[in-house]
Design a protein around this nucleic acid. Structure first.
Lengths: 183, 183
DNA sequence: GACAATACGGAGACAGTCTCCGTTTAGCAA
DNA sequence: TTGCTAAACGGAGACTGTCTCCGTATTGTC
């Protein structure tokens, strides 16, 4: 890749991250191009669709998921707390930008999603946490990872759309956790 | 209201219902106007915002919620089945048009929402069902109606966004129900 | 039948998406 | 260094959707 192309690419990604954080995932792409100091054509050449740009942005913080999962796995304490702690982190991560929860959760389990690889990292991390609980025989029968991720993603989506704060989200996650854990 | 105004109003509502059903809540309003055989100005005069139009459309089927709640209340059987049956109906109702679950669920508990009155009908029905279970001492402590509606709405939203069918939705609702019901 | 009051409708201003293509630049080879 | 070519740039403009403005038409009343 030519040096100028690479330079523009990173500029676009950085700017997009900033703009998406400020305005959510439906921000104007032309504005992102303008702020990044490139023409619209350049943006669209690098990222033919909005989702392609999204995918590039997610790269950075998908890495954080791994750490968070490790931390959850190392947690010594009751399963309910472990699960709730993980849910909190997960919701925080997918809610970094407005529109994120819906985008990500709807892509779970979709093999054709443009952000598939990123979602696989997420479900991978989720799976490890769930497996840890399964090993401890803490989960009900027939509970599977994608279902759990969808439930938590649903909570995050509702919170995102409705502007709920952490205090309003907590009880919802508690219900989901109680529904997943062995009674 | 003048006769021609009323005629146009109903034409617009009927057309909008049709178009929204076909294309979801983000369909073009100009197309609705065109299909209804009126000018864009006429549509916007009757319904200044997309939400105002939505509100008018919801009227018809909000009525169905009442019946459905009555039916649920009359149900003789285990609380878990009652709750799941109600969830199914509720999800079906708010999912009539694409985009509906997110729209409606994010409006729950928002006193400034343009579809507030419709949401109140929904939560009212939801509340009666929940109260019935509370009377039977079937619910966990501290479970409240809006929380339950948000959870079910979250499931419906995820299903709507991700194109999940009833078979994929069922287990999610089961988890929510188990989380709400006394262990 | 005339005259307000009310309602209509579509042209057009505006904003966002996305493409096309003439211009510029990086990188390499002589 | 210079010259060359493939690669990349960028912005004008076509297109779509939102929403307003205002000249025109219709309704219902006296």
């Amino acid at each position: 890749m030519r040096a100028d192309a690479l330079r523009n690419r990173t500029r676009i990604i950085d700017t997009a991250r900033e703009v998406f954080r400020e305005q959510g995932y439906d921000a104007s792409l032309d504005e992102i191009a303008k702020r990044a100091g490139v023409g619209a054509g350049t943006l669209y050449r690098h990222f033919p669709t909005r989702d392609a740009l999204l995918d590039a942005i997610m790269q950075t913080w998908v890495d954080r998921v791994e750490e968070a999962a490790e931390k959850a796995l190392a947690f010594e304490g009751p399963p309910r707390e472990l699960l709730l702690g993980w849910f909190d982190v997960y919701v925080g991560l997918i809610s970094l930008h407005r529109g994120g929860p819906a985008k990500i959760t709807s892509a779970l389990g979709d093999p054709d999603s443009p952000i598939r690889t990123k979602c696989e990292v997420l479900t991978g991390a989720f799976e490890r946490v769930m497996q840890r609980l399964r090993d401890a025989d803490a989960l009900r029968e027939g509970v599977d990872t994608v279902q759990a991720a969808r439930l938590v993603g649903g909570v995050a989506t509702v919170a995102d759309d409705g502007g709920l704060d952490a205090a309003a989200v907590r009880p919802l996650l508690v219900v989901v956790a109680d529904g997943l854990l062995r009674a």
